[in-house]
Design a protein around this nucleic acid. Structure first.
Lengths: 154, 154
DNA sequence: TATTGTTATACTCTATAACTATA
DNA sequence: TATAGTTATAGAGTATAACAATA
């Protein structure tokens, strides 16, 4: 194969483009993995400070408003059968109660108790406070990040 | 209590500042929770596509280089006893092998097999590809996000 | 018939404690 | 004595399947 100088320049440029793209993808992958790991650890650590497992913390955070057990299962993306035990353990601790839904006697609403609501607020605040996003970035940077995350979460 | 117009203006300004800050914190909290949830779901879904549990996927991703079982436990922030079973299950599937470390016969190195390395690459790529960050943001936005995340992860 | 919640079962994750081989 | 890995045990998360009550 023979190359004109123009061909070669264009070829090299394209290769550099691919390499840059691959490097960007690699860097971003590593960074996302690192942030994902750190976010998970943070979540677990904070939940543990409140004597909650990850699943329990997710449930409590999801119950800002009372919701049918089925809805909670959908939100947690787990089988409905899991929610029975999850609710049992939270109920024993006095964080939630099962209530009846008006109009459909099959449905049981899960609602936070006063203690549950109090814990939920504290949990949310602690999650936020411990987040690397809040501890490492200033207000302006957080605003930029917030806009990007908002776009990434819609 | 009596107010001069200057006092009142300053007071109101301070209150507005506090309210804005509280609103920012609330918004950021909600957003972070949403992104955290979505990231977790994404991780679980992608891992499941490779027939891996979350813990197994984290282990495979962490084993880019061979490492002592103890190091893996440290990385996963779990008790060392867990790694035995975790390694067992990955070993049965032919994804990792236990190797001896030169110089200390107590240590067992966990190393990905060829199949393990292949799976790891595919897993990482799938995690990245399925990430809302990659699907919703363009290259410029990703660059800004990357810089912010880099700062937030150091 | 379809849906909600429950129970039974099995597998995995996780921590604690006791054990071994080695350092 | 201290450390790396294992085993046994127990509690919790998770999915599947079968079930009762209700729609």
């Amino acid at each position: 194969m023979r190359w004109s100088s123009v061909d070669r320049a264009e070829y090299c440029s394209r290769v550099r483009g691919r390499q840059a793209k691959a490097a960007e993808a690699r860097d971003t992958a590593a960074l996302l993995m690192a942030v994902t790991e750190r976010t998970r650890q943070n979540f677990e650590d904070v939940a543990a400070r409140f004597d909650l497992t990850t699943a329990q913390a997710r449930a409590v955070l999801a119950l800002a408003d009372a919701a049918p057990m089925r809805s909670l299962a959908d939100h947690l993306r787990c089988d409905a059968s899991n929610v029975t035990g999850l609710a049992d353990r939270l109920e024993v601790r006095g964080l939630v109660v099962r209530a009846e839904q008006h109009g459909d006697r099959r449905v049981k609403l899960l609602a936070l108790t006063d203690a549950g609501r109090k814990l939920r607020s504290a949990l949310e605040a602690a999650m936020l406070e411990a987040s690397p996003v809040m501890t490492s970035l200033d207000a302006d940077e957080r605003k930029v990040l917030r806009d990007l995350l908002l776009k990434a979460s819609t």
